[in-house]
Design a protein around this nucleic acid. Structure first.
Length: 600
RNA sequence: GGCCCCGUAGCUCAGUGGAUAGAGCGACCGCCUCCUAAGCGGUAGGUCACAGGUUCAAAUCCUGUCGGGGUCACCA
């Protein structure tokens, strides 16, 4: 593997094995050294190197990259960790990228890289731009991300907002990691709630004709249906007045859901979310699709008529044994089998969802991701069972449950009630704090942790507001670049990247570069775990490193990016902040947040 | 009661099996004739709920217990 010896700072075309992920490159180097050691008889043949890692150590005193090779191989090889480590160290020292090798702790090999490696990394970032960090992790993999999927019965509320941002950012993240991603919305337009919607619109229609109407329980009294009723009047005139449901219900279902979906599309657009496909539940009924999906399960012996046991330990007074059509989901990891037909012969909600996921499977996706509200946790096992059964275990399904958003204002909880009209919609949030802030804040928690969203705090301009803090770093960099340009410096990426960057060598500068080096690795971890919040946290850390270096320039003028009366040195010093801005832009891009060039 | 998620600093939370567990807020002490102080540096603060187990190595994986939340046939 001679090419592995090519210094990665050399402006050469990347070889197949050389990635943008520095830690992968070093791991390759370690594996090469291990292979050579085996060849020379220093290690037995047939060892697996799978457990060997090369990671950034938590403590900077432990060098730049640490590998556990000696520890994981000690037992299988029957050698002492120390002996393996020493032999490896010898070989690793020969690589031009390695400045120092140290055996430490229980057998870690701590590697320190040469400044040239770090300087070269800045050049790489500037050349690759937002392509720096893009991964081939998902190359050739098609992923379907289903998210939001709110009932088409009204405008989106805050709970949907978090799911929408999460799903969209996750989709972008997976794209960035090389996957072919489809963003999809399942329209729950097949159930009884659509009839309720249609009747509610009918009431508003009567109202538009000047009638006095009341909204009994089981109807939607929301104002947002007023204009829908008016629109219906404009369309059909008085054709439905004094007519029974048998005349208008069918038509109103279509009319009302279409109106609601328009509302929802607008809501999504205000968040910057664009779906690739809206998939209608109703399109599954009467088209043989549900039957086909269940036939597939039936052919696998997974459909039967049977009676369920009553739920364990829970008292259900009205429970009675009943024969139903059941899916043998318990054979695919579920706790009990699940009914697909109701006692009246109609499908349960589960049945069309099986058909929908069957459709996804047959469309050829390699992986499916469903983003649900946390209250759907009880639905996960059966859905996974369905996908497992339908795909013969070939397609994976990961369900991400989104916890609640707790809305507050100045620390005081906002009471929400549909009846009291204090119901907070997605639009309320976006209108008040803006798309960028909404998106970023929604990603500052792990998906399965509750999120507090404080209308005042998210607009606060201080370091405890991560949105601001990251944006501020970017704006500072843009400010520096503007001033450098005013000094007559060519600030184009090509010009900066083409320079000799060996003047960027202060430990404080190298520390910031090392943070940049973690970016490709972080992207892969985030993509592998389907956790876009990791991007937001990383950006905060990167911004923090940057602000730290900036402030050092207060005392140490040599660390300032703008070097007075020295355009040539300024051109060099500017490379690092510029690279930082590239990564911030890439990261914010994944989150769907626009980087600010100025904040005053 | 079954299943799922959570339990980490006073508070809010990070932490793909690695070394001495981190950040922000709050508290205390410093830093602007100087690229945006909307910032930076430092101090204090911990039985990673508890008990076992696996491992060279556990906040992380497994089992159990305790505590908080969600959910529980014929709703969607």
């Amino acid at each position: 593997m001679r090419f592995a010896r090519t210094p990665c700072y050399a402006p050469v075309r990347k070889t197949r094995a050389e990635t943008m992920n520095l830690f992968d490159d070093i791991r390759t180097l370690v594996l090469d050294a291990l292979t050579a050691t085996v060849r020379d008889g220093g290690l037995p043949e047939g060892l697996s190197f799978d457990a060997v890692t090369a990671e950034p150590p938590r403590d900077a005193a432990h060098g730049d990259v640490a590998t556990n090779a000696a520890m994981v191989l000690a037992k299988p090889s029957g050698l002492k960790p120390r002996a393996i480590a020493e032999a490896l160290a010898e070989r690793l020292r020969a690589d031009p990228r390695i400045a120092e090798v140290e055996v430490a702790g229980p057998g870690f090999l701590n590697l320190t890289l040469t400044p040239a490696v770090w300087q070269g990394l800045v050049g790489t970032v500037l050349r690759d731009q937002t392509g720096y960090g893009r991964s081939q992790l998902g190359a050739g993999k098609r992923v379907n991300v289903e998210f939001v999927s709110a009932n088409p019965t009204g405008p989106m509320h805050v709970g949907h907002t978090r799911g929408a941002v999460f799903g969209d950012a996750l989709a972008s993240l997976l794209e960035y990691a090389g996957h072919d991603v489809t963003r999809e919305y399942y329209i729950n337009d097949g159930g009884a709630q659509v009839d309720v919607l249609a009747r509610s619109v009918y009431l508003r229609y009567l109202e538009a004709h000047g009638q006095d109407v009341a909204f009994p329980d089981g109807t939607y009294p929301g104002d947002y249906l007023i204009e829908v009723g008016q629109a219906l009047k404009d369309k059909v005139g008085d054709a439905y007045l004094d007519k029974g449901e048998d005349v208008w219900l069918e038509d109103l279902r279509d009319f009302a859901t279409a109106a609601m979906m328009e509302l929802i599309r607008d809501d999504l657009a205000s968040l910057g979310v664009k779906m690739d496909l809206f998939y209608s539940e109703r399109s599954l009924y009467g088209t043989g699709k549900i039957e086909a999906a269940l036939a597939d399960l039936d052919a696998k012996g997974l459909i039967y008529e049977g009676v369920l046991e009553p739920p364990k330990g829970k008292l259900l007074e009205d429970w009675e044994p009943r024969e139903q059509t059941l899916f043998r989901s318990s054979l695919h990891g579920d706790d009990v089998d699940r009914p697909v037909k109701k006692s009246d012969g109609g499908w349960t909600y589960f049945a069309p969802d099986i058909a929908y996921h069957y459709d996804k499977v047959t469309r050829g996706f390699d992986a499916l991701i469903d983003v649900f509200g946390a209250d759907h946790g009880g639905y996960v096992k059966r859905m996974k069972a369905a996908v497992s059964a339908l795909s013969g275990g070939k397609v994976s399904l990961d369900v991400k449950l989104i916890q609640l958003v707790k809305l507050t204002r100045n620390g005081q909880p906002l009471k929400m009630s549909k009846r009291a009209g204090t119901f907070v919609t997605l639009r309320d949030v976006v209108d008040q704090v803006g798309q960028d802030v909404t998106r970023f804040v929604m990603l500052t928690r792990k998906n399965d942790a509750p999120l507090e969203f404080d209308f005042d705090k998210v607009l606060e301009q201080s370091k405890d507001n991560p949105v601001f803090y990251v944006q501020y770093a970017h704006a500072r960099i843009c400010s520096v670049l503007r001033k450098a340009e005013a000094m007559g410096v060519d600030v184009s990426d090509a010009a900066i990247a083409a320079q000799d960057l060996s003047d960027i060598s202060d430990p404080a500068e190298l520390a910031l570069i090392k943070k940049l080096a973690e970016w490709p690795r972080l992207v892969e971890i985030a993509a592998r775990t389907n956790e876009p919040h990791r991007i937001a946290f990383y950006l905060y850390e990167l911004a923090s490193e940057f602000h730290g270096l900036w402030s050092r320039g207060n005392d140490a003028t040599g660390l300032r990016f703008l070097q007075e009366d020295d355009p040539a040195l300024t051109a060099t010093k500017i490379a690092l902040p510029k690279a930082v801005s590239v990564v911030i832009s890439a990261g914010l891009g994944i989150l769907g947040v626009t980087p600010l060039e100025e904040m005053r």
